[in-house]
Design a binder for these strands. Structure first.
Lengths: 205, 205, 205, 205
DNA sequence: AATGAATGAGAATTCATTCAT
DNA sequence: AATGAATGAATTCTCATTCAT
């Protein structure tokens, strides 16, 4: 009968979509199986448990972000300012398309008191995001302020992204992204920029 | 035996705490009953269903915010700047104590695709918050920018609050609050303030 | 505080109506209490249990039938034929008004394998009905045939009454009643009537 | 372990037996599961809900009657009189064996004010029965009287069947069936029979 | 690999009954 | 008498997981 061989990526993508739409507890294994074109019993050929699946989905998405979004921060082919722009654009795209960016917040908040194994990838996601931004801000300010700014920016973007989804208005996120890039530009032109590493050699993490 | 009387406020408070800790789907009616010192069957003396209970909790908390936090925006006994400070302090207190402020985001994200009846109080909460801030910003800028600023501030605070809870670091929220108040002060001293209603009579909403 | 003193007859009538409408198992004690203008807890001042209440309702209704319907069979002030007519009319009235006549069949069928204590009044009702008719038929035929005829008539009337209620068409019952009276009249004029006690002194049961 | 396969027919038969014995409301899903040799959770592999199961049982039994009992009315290989005899015999057999014939009355009366979805098969059953008898009576009388007679016969048989079960005496039903066949025979020999379609070609329904 | 049957541990909810006030 | 709170057992239904085919 039908249904091609199911590859792991398809499966993780399907699972992500279902978890994204319904949250962890309200998603049933049957929902996910169905999204993969399988029956409930069959999915256990691919996964060990619902919890292990979610853990894998989280790690997968984290990697995806690292490679496709945060990586821009370290791409020396572009100016730091352009990297920030790219990072923001990419993030906006992913957040607004299917709101995947909220996944970590959603799952994190829903399971923070119940499921340990989700913590690591979730915290890891935020840490990588913050580090990418810190790195970029370190071109225009000192180490410490760069970190603080990065943390604040992540908070702002997450807040805006969540409200965009909840209030069904993409403007929250779009405005925030514009603002962040603008501030960066202005900052660059100011004396405080002198503190940054802009004229030093870049040290990769 | 005194058949321990339970009052509705206690019940709603207990329910809020449990829902806050475990989310909507992962909370069982028995959890809530237990938090009230009841057996699970007994709680149906007070509630019609789990869903109705959550709806009521949301409305209750919304009212609480309106009265104890957002109301400061309209208190003419204080300068607008001080009102913002009060509002921020109050919010911070409530967010950081038990993170109640995240309740609307958490429940909203978890149930946005499944439970209609939660939408109204959740959206209402954000709208009231935005309106309170809009009102304060309208003293220092024009109507439109006041609204936009309010929206952005709410997004920022929510984002910071969520990260504070998720990363277990209160600094996210505290910094954001400080920043918001600082910006307001600086704004006030600038010419753009001339656009606002600062020198007009206040028109209550 | 409203609600006059509640007398037992009111209570039994209310209970009968609710049981009639919803059957035994689907009726809750709260339904009955409400029908009496009481709260659930209060009704236990009047009844011992749901089962005991139903038993009493059955006995009450049985007595009501004995006095108001079956009694006509034994009223020497009228001709046997007219007594049958009265009995049929009365039954029709009661059956069609609120279908109380079906009560015994309904409750009987619903609980025949579960609740012993209902059997007695239910069987008693049918036996009294059959006896009343037997008595009347004994004026026009012999003892044995009178009994058989009575049994058949009861079956016919019950069947018609049930279908009248189920199919919501009173004609089933009305036609059956007409037929029964007609047959009686015709029978009376035939020689077979000679077998009956019509010319003997009546022996009360 | 062969994970004992249960087929739908077995399940419906088991459910019918349990519902027959205990009525709708007093039957638990666990009762039915047990009757099928399943645990209560397992039965939801086969059914959607208790209500849907009952609906299916009713429809199933209705079809069974149509095929195995009412169908005799239209079998041109036999004389109409013999068809009536067959129909009556079959019905008697089924009614008396496990009283399945009362199922429609029982369920109908118990749920008439509460469960809509049962109405259709229940009314359908009676209508098909009446139509089968109407068809047979139309050989010995005119259309209209045939219908009236059929309705009355159904009422009589149902009444007798119910009393047979309630009073635990099969004679009620047996006598009624005998009577019905006798009347048909006598009717056939009388002039009124001339009105019927006896000498016409049969028009299948 | 895929399936579908089966499981068993809960989940929400109902309800007859008790009892202190 | 009436109430309303509390109970706890029962009931319908869900779901992650296992397993034979």
């Amino acid at each position: 009968m039908p249904k091609q061989k199911i590859d792991r990526d398809d499966l993780l993508r399907s699972a992500l979509n279902v978890f994204m739409k319904k949250g962890y507890y309200h998603t049933t294994v049957a929902d996910i199986a169905e999204a993969c074109g399988l029956l409930k019993g069959s999915i256990y050929h691919y996964i060990e448990s619902k919890e292990a699946l979610m853990t894998e989905v989280l790690e997968h998405l984290k990697k995806y972000y690292a490679r496709n979004v945060f990586a821009w921060a370290y791409d020396e082919d572009y100016e730091p300012e352009d990297r920030l722009q790219m990072l923001a654009s990419k993030a906006e795209e992913i957040f607004l398309d299917r709101h995947y960016g909220n996944f970590f917040v959603n799952v994190g908040m829903e399971t923070r008191n119940s499921i340990e194994s989700f913590h690591k990838p979730i915290l890891g996601f935020f840490e990588e995001w913050i580090q990418a931004l810190s790195y970029l801000y370190s071109f225009v300010t000192d180490e410490k302020e760069a970190r603080l700014t990065a943390e604040m920016v992540v908070a702002e973007v997450e807040g805006a992204a969540v409200l965009s989804q909840l209030l069904e208005d993409p403007e929250y996120l779009k405005r925030t992204n514009r603002k962040i890039v603008d501030i960066y530009k202005r900052w660059k032109q100011k004396p405080s920029a002198a503190k940054g590493r802009s004229n030093q050699a870049e040290n990769r993490r």
